[in-house]
């Protein structure tokens, strides 16, 4: 399955300023691992040592929240995954 990955512009420095990224996988977890394979530095930002998603990120698929089963959330060809950083600034 090929999915589009959309993320905050602030992470573009980890993807050589590429914002239109595709990843392969049947679940969100597999897609994020594929993203980390393509862009290891980005992987270090979003995944912990066990390759799980860090709690400071939320993942949405086609605009729908994937919590609490984010890493096992099923995706299909053409889906869009959004990686959203939890922010607190005021």
């Amino acid at each position: 399955m090929s999915v589009a990955i959309e993320f905050s512009s602030i992470f573009a420095k980890y993807t050589n300023n590429q914002m239109d990224i595709k990843a392969e996988g049947k679940t969100v977890g597999e897609c994020l691992h594929d993203l980390a394979r393509q862009y290891p530095e980005f992987g270090e930002i979003i995944l912990d040592k066990n390759r799980d998603l860090l709690p400071s990120f939320d993942i949405f698929v086609n605009g729908e929240d994937t919590y609490p089963h984010t890493m096992t959330y099923q995706v299909k060809d053409g889906d869009k995954i959004n990686i959203v950083l939890i922010v607190h600034g005021g």
Partner: peptide, 29 residues
């Protein structure tokens, strides 16, 4: 909430819509 050139907004109506805890699940960054 804001960060750099980015921001988020959501309105919570108690008893009717998701609250901040439904959104962020108590995560502290």
């Amino acid at each position: 909430a804001v960060y750099g050139f980015e921001g988020r907004a959501m309105t919570v109506i108690p008893g009717k819509s998701a609250c901040l805890n439904c959104l962020y699940h108590g995560v502290i960054v």
